[in-house]
Amino acid sequence: MSNLWVLNLGFAVLLVGVGLYCLLTMRNTVKLLIGIEVIAKGVTLALVAGGAARGNLMVAQSLAITVIVVDVAVIATALALVININRHTKSLDVRKLTRLKG
């Protein structure tokens, strides 16, 4: 079971790394939200794997559900922001948002 925990944790780190790469390099605002979603998947996997390894699966599940709910609220609000920004800038390019400065 402990080896399985290490395997799950390793893949969760990979997911978080892939999501961070997306956040650091992409310019499309929808892609940035997809990166956040990938990071949330890594966090969910790590939480449940940790709970399963230590015998606290029910607590881990409740925390994972909390993460999912927060994630949905964040994505819904961020997508609404993206649609509103798109109406003004006619683009999904995050670099266009520099025009909002000052």
Binding site: M26, N28, I34, A76, S91
Partner: peptide, 19 residues
Amino acid sequence: VLFITAIALTRGDGDVAEG
């Protein structure tokens, strides 16, 4: 569904030149 709705509402503007 939220992502697909947002993509449909911003159709035509999704082509952002990535590095």
